[in-house]
């Protein structure tokens, strides 16, 4: 078992109110598996990802439940223990490739960052590993990009840089938090292909988060549908897509733009 989440609950608290971003979330994932979480914005899917990744400041929210990652509970770890896992065995890529990279740091250094944190490798070795990861993430001419700054790259390339940086230590699990939402459709398809290849060649398990059930179906074996911080439906991707049990899942599928709707215009378009 790679990941075993039980009754994850995330409650944000400010001075006056409490807010359950995630009410009850459970999930089991095997090594090398690709699982999708689908839901509309505000359904708690991103919060689930950030909670697992340890990116929600503990002062801001109460996080309860269990999240066993290769046997160790991510939610019970000290910050120092968690840092040992972050970027090494567990990595994340985000929705906003435009702002997720440091504007004043060269691409190479950002891809190498996890190596700098977790290893004692020298500069030459780090560079070699970074270039390798960039090639794996589908970036052509990594040598040249290594010296570039983020603003010199397109959105798709930046997301590939994020992927390379996340994979540089070959983590067991990659959390992809809406990685293609900000990109146009062609680029989106190419990035999905790259993630598929990485899963196949490196055996990296992927937890793929999206509001688009169609995208999830193209990539994932299993799907979890979330709404209002709760799991609504769960099952093999094809089954959930073609034979949804819940009305909410059917709405999500119906909300997708299809070619027919786009061509026909009308009230659906």
């Amino acid at each position: 078992m790679l990941l075993h989440v039980e009754h994850l609950k995330v409650t944000f608290h400010d001075r006056s109110s409490l807010f359950d971003a995630v009410e009850d979330f459970s999930l089991q994932m095997e090594e090398g598996e690709v699982v999708g979480i689908v839901g509309e914005s505000g359904s708690g899917k991103s919060m689930t990802a950030h909670a697992l990744m340890g990116l929600i400041p503990r002062a801001k929210a109460d996080i309860s439940g269990k999240a066993l990652f290769r046997g160790a509970d991510l939610l019970a770890m000290s910050r120092a223990q968690l840092r040992q896992v972050q970027g090494r065995e567990l990595s994340i890529i985000f929705q906003e490739p435009m702002t997720s990279l440091n504007p004043t740091m060269r691409i190479g250094r950002q891809v190498e960052d996890a190596l700098r944190v977790h290893t004692k490798l020298g500069a030459g070795e780090r560079r070699a590993r970074a270039l390798e990861a960039m090639a794996l993430a589908g970036l052509s001419d990594p040598e040249k990009l290594y010296r570039c700054y983020p603003h010199q790259l397109s959105g798709g390339m930046r997301q590939r840089v994020m992927i390379a940086a996340a994979l540089v230590l070959r983590p067991r699990l990659l959390i992809a938090d809406e990685p293609t939402t900000a990109l146009d459709v062609t680029i989106q398809a190419q990035i999905l292909d790259t993630l598929k290849d990485i899963n196949r060649t490196e055996g990296t398990a992927i937890l793929f988060i999206s509001h688009d059930l169609g995208v999830v179906k193209a990539l994932c074996q299993r799907v979890v549908v979330m709404r209002h911080g709760l799991i609504v439906e769960e099952g093999p991707a094809d089954q959930v897509f073609y034979h949804p049990r819940e009305g909410y899942t059917r709405q999500l599928i119906a909300a997708r733009p299809t070619r027919k709707k786009l061509r026909g215009g009308g009230e659906d378009g």
Partner: peptide, 9 residues
């Protein structure tokens, strides 16, 4: 990008 940095440990 700070969130990214934290995610690397």
């Amino acid at each position: 990008y700070i969130r990214t940095a934290y995610s690397k440990g």
